[in-house]
């Protein structure tokens, strides 16, 4: 469904992604690991359509269509979901409003009828159970005053509501306590089908115990320098990144 070919990306004149290649098929789980600053979030943001990045060359297709020319909201409605590494707060905008608008925008795009308040609340409650989201949180403004872990949980809650085809989870595990990690992973797994795919960005093998990847890629210095099965995650956990850095002449 997703095909990234030779992607180069710069920010403010600085080259960050230096020739990324990646193929993702329905039903697959890909893990992307790599040292701080290697470009993982950049890749996630570029796929989601954040503007400040300049794509200097390469192409990305999503279901055989050029992804890069689509507006971010279009990508979202066509099934790309990004669980943000740092979800922002939007004061004064109630969660419920925000979510209902998001869900209905998705529905409109699919030619489905918009949900009325009552119908939406019912759907919301269902999905809240999935990630053990509390009404205390859904009654507040978007992410406002949420703890780090609550924000991450809220991302997966939104994922549950929007049922994406391609979910990109950018360090969703950071900041979660052990129980929350299990709950969130359980939520992600429950949403898994043979039709959708997940890209998990993480630093820790621990998450991959719960969300088991088919492939593990190491992103280093703007390139995917190694790809293998889930055993690679264990190796990284054990040995760190030094050997990767050495192999790549640094």
């Amino acid at each position: 469904m997703l095909s990234i070919k030779n992607l180069y990306v710069s920010v403010e004149g600085k080259e960050i992604l230096k020739g990324i290649n990646l193929e993702v098929k329905p039903g697959e789980v890909h893990a992307i690991m790599g040292p701080n600053g290697s470009g993982k979030s950049t890749l996630a943001n570029v796929l989601a359509g954040k503007e400040e990045y300049e794509i200097t060359s390469g192409e990305v297709t999503y279901f055989n269509e050029d992804l890069l020319e689509k507006a971010p909201e279009k990508r979202a409605k066509e099934g790309i979901f990004l669980s943000f590494q740092y979800p922002v707060e939007i004061p004064g905008v109630p969660m419920v409003n925000f979510l209902k608008t998001a869900v209905n925008e998705h529905r409109k795009n699919k030619g489905e009828k918009e949900l009325k308040a009552g119908e939406f609340l019912k759907l919301m409650r269902e999905k809240m159970d999935l990630v053990e989201m509390h009404t205390q949180l859904t009654n507040r403004s978007v992410n406002e005053g949420f703890s780090g872990g609550e924000k991450k949980k809220n991302e997966i809650f939104q994922m549950a509501l929007l049922e994406p085809k391609l979910a990109i989870l950018d360090e969703t595990d950071s900041g979660l306590d052990i129980d929350a990690l299990k709950t969130v992973a359980h939520g992600v797994n429950a949403l898994k089908t043979s039709e959708n795919a997940t890209i998990v960005v993480t630093h820790y093998q621990r998450l991959l115990d719960y969300i088991v990847p088919d492939f593990v890629h190491v992103l280093y210095n703007g390139k995917i320098v190694k790809s293998a099965g889930k055993e690679l995650a264990f190796e990284l956990e054990e040995k760190g990144y030094d050997w990767i850095k050495k192999e790549n002449g640094n």
Partner: peptide, 24 residues
């Protein structure tokens, strides 16, 4: 811009996002 992008990423276009943020 991060707030607007967050809304965009959830399928909400920029005009609507601004409407929401401003009303908030």
């Amino acid at each position: 811009e991060d707030q607007i992008f967050y809304c965009n990423q959830r399928g909400i276009d920029t005009e609507k996002a601004i409407g929401m943020i401003v009303n908030g």
